[in-house]
Nucleic acid binder design. Structure first.
Lengths: 221, 221
DNA sequence: CATCAAAATGAGTGATTACTCACTTTTTAT
DNA sequence: ATAAAAAGTGAGTAATCACTCATTTTGATG
């Protein structure tokens, strides 16, 4: 089985700037992802990145003008990827030709985001750690993810609400509730990684929690 | 109205080590909380902490042997506080003489944790940012919070499950689901702080989401 | 093989880092 | 009032930081 990070980096290397990267340049990126994830941006030394990549320190600065440029070259395309396949590949078909049930929609979202997180834990970790310290990063993240994704999802939520599948709450609130449940699942599974985690059980419980939490209420005594 | 951080620091200053702190020492702590929250541990310079506190840099190292000691002196008592009032003040009465309804219990937890977060945003921010980089911190956090708190909460969950108030899921799963919903509420409210946030509406929606997500299912159709 | 531009190098730069220590000031005890 | 202890100081230190640059290596082209 192929290392998912490997796969992601390859795509990044091929597509980035049109031209292909040199061997050393890709090793710099790989090492930078490692060290940033381990020590955070401030705690990561360019000397260590160079050492782990097996290149001279000067080589880093031949390709990236500053250390911050190096960070952005890793995180920026990831932010784009965070939404692009999500919105375009999964959401558009769901909007244009939505899944008949809210349950089917939720299961689809869960599967998709779990697969995405599985592939990109390290870069996600970097993003979560550095966003608080880099206003430009936060701005880019919010303007892309928040504005574009939320608007799209809001449409979908409205659709199911109109169909009477889910309860009457502001769509943004619904997104927050589902989002935090999904996020909690991902954090516990990938960052805490508890022993004896029965994934199919946990996943099913999570789906049921979301469905019952949002589905139209049946008044009972 | 009094600054909540002020209040927390005062308690910390009085109780810490039994003896009272000097004026300069408390100003060092205050400044350290500021700078750590703004720049993270690695990004924070002791020179800047000294400057903001209005003391000489040497004074910091008279009271704290290393920069890491300074961080721990802020975070460690907070971790204790994270559980102490939570477990003892709120949970024990709920276990010994539990709230008759699951709904009442959830509302109580929500109120309590919201108030706590409101008081301690800055230190929470430091804790969230630094836990990934300090294994000792993570260990302490997990051994105290995870083990002790989770065990206590598990009992409460079991209680409501036996009473038939909530659905049949593993107690730890229930804690994860409620926890992530509560956590999501806190993050969105305090860290994102969206404009036009209708708190009473959001809070009620969150409670309803949790209650319906976990309450015993009524088979329909 | 010769040419040349891009890639790579690593010693060197000044700035900044956490931390020390000899010394002065303030507080406490008698 | 005086001595002892504790608190505070700031110049100084070695280490490390991100980054530069003159020089060498590499790889493609004629």
């Amino acid at each position: 089985m192929k290392d998912p990070l490997e796969q992601w980096l390859e795509e990044l290397l091929e597509k980035h700037e049109g031209e292909r990267m040199t061997d050393k340049q890709s090793r710099i990126l790989r090492a930078a992802v490692e060290v940033f994830a381990e020590k955070g941006y401030s705690g990561a030394a360019t000397s260590e990145i160079a050492q782990r990549a097996g290149v001279a320190e000067g080589t880093i600065f031949r390709h990236y003008r500053t250390k911050k440029d190096l960070l952005y070259s890793i995180v920026a395309p990831f932010v784009a990827r965070l939404i692009e396949p999500f919105v375009l590949r999964d959401l558009y078909p769901l909007i244009d030709n939505p899944h008949p049930t809210f349950e089917g929609f939720i299961r689809g979202i869960l599967d998709n985001r779990i697969a995405f997180a599985e592939k990109n834990i390290k870069v996600i970790r970097i993003l979560l750690q550095e966003v608080p310290f880099h206003p430009e990063l936060r701005e880019q993240f919010l303007s892309k993810v928040a504005d574009r994704v939320l608007r799209k999802i809001t449409n979908v939520v409205n659709h199911y609400r109109e169909q009477g599948h889910i309860v009457e709450v502001p769509p943004l609130t619904a997104v927050r509730l589902v989002g935090s449940t999904l996020f909690g699942y991902l954090i516990v599974r990938f960052l805490f990684a508890p022993t004896g985690w029965d994934d199919s059980l946990e996943r099913e419980a999570t789906v049921q929690y979301i469905l019952h939490g949002l589905s139209s209420r049946i008044e009972a005594k």
